[in-house]
């Protein structure tokens, strides 16, 4: 089948950039979306045109490297699916697709569909951890974790840091990402001692990175490839408010 692509092309962070139209004539429906872009790129190289830069790595939906907007939806139309796991059988002959990079002040465009997501790393560095130096841990079974807590914690910990939540959020807020880490660690007994400081430090860092505010719209939850729930944001809000009120 034939697919028509409109792709954001931008040489570097200083370039203005624009949408460019391409046609991919021989798309097989068994292809993944990124394989379709590979085919386009091979074609462009043979025509002496620069291939489209896009981020990707594991191509099995776990590393969180890939992702772009497809017709205004982060990671494309299929819920719970990263772009690399989206297959062309979900599209049809002649479909026109608009591919744009994640847009947020905190995610400057590096080139074409590639953005800089290091703001996420800095949010984690601000407090998204449990401070335990190597070697100081007690036996694994010394701390019991109720199964339900372990499961809920795992639900939140499944975040792959792809940035789709920010990209889709009308406010470009990183609340789902930040909340997921706060919930992951805050649901475990090991995470309790630093829970208050963690919430305050991570929320402050997100603000500093120019992410917007959460207005409880739910776009992030709808496009999250790991289906992380809005509940983690409430948890973050609660932890932050409690820490602000009760801190000495």
């Amino acid at each position: 089948m034939k697919i028509i692509l409109h792709i954001w092309r931008q040489r570097n962070c200083k370039d203005k950039g624009k949408m460019t139209r391409y046609e991919v004539p021989n798309v097989n429906q068994e292809m993944s979306f990124l394989e379709m872009l590979d085919v386009l790129n091979e074609d462009l190289i043979l025509k002496n045109e620069e291939p489209v830069a896009f981020d990707h790595d594991c191509r099995e939906g776990i590393c969180g490297t890939c992702g772009c907007m497809v017709n205004g939806m982060a990671h494309g139309p299929l819920p719970g699916t990263t772009l690399c796991q989206l297959h062309m059988r979900h599209f049809k002959e002649g479909d026109e697709l608009y591919l744009e990079p994640w847009r947020a002040a905190a995610f400057p465009v590096v080139k074409d569909l590639v953005v800089d997501r290091s703001a996420f790393d800095r949010i984690i560095a601000a407090g998204g951890y449990i401070s335990v130096a190597t070697g100081s841990a007690p036996d694994g079974n010394a701390v019991l974790v109720p199964k339900e807590n372990a499961e809920c914690s795992m639900d939140a910990a499944a975040c792959i840091g792809c940035g789709a939540c920010v990209a889709m959020c009308p406010n470009a807020s990183a609340a789902l990402f930040t909340g997921a880490k706060i919930a992951h660690l805050g649901l475990l007994p090991q995470g309790q001692p630093e829970r208050d400081q963690r919430a305050i430090a991570m929320v402050a860092q997100a603000r500093q990175e120019l992410f917007g505010s959460c207005t409880n719209i739910g776009e992030c939850e709808a496009v999250c490839p790991k289906e992380i729930k809005l509940e983690v944001i409430a948890r973050m809000n609660g932890d932050f408010i409690r820490a602000s009120l009760t801190g000495r």
Partner: peptide, 17 residues
């Protein structure tokens, strides 16, 4: 919100809003 996304999408859809 405006500061957080200075460049708008050419095409934007809603997923759940």
């Amino acid at each position: 919100k405006n500061d957080a996304r200075p460049v708008a999408y050419v095409k934007k859809d809603d997923a759940a809003a």
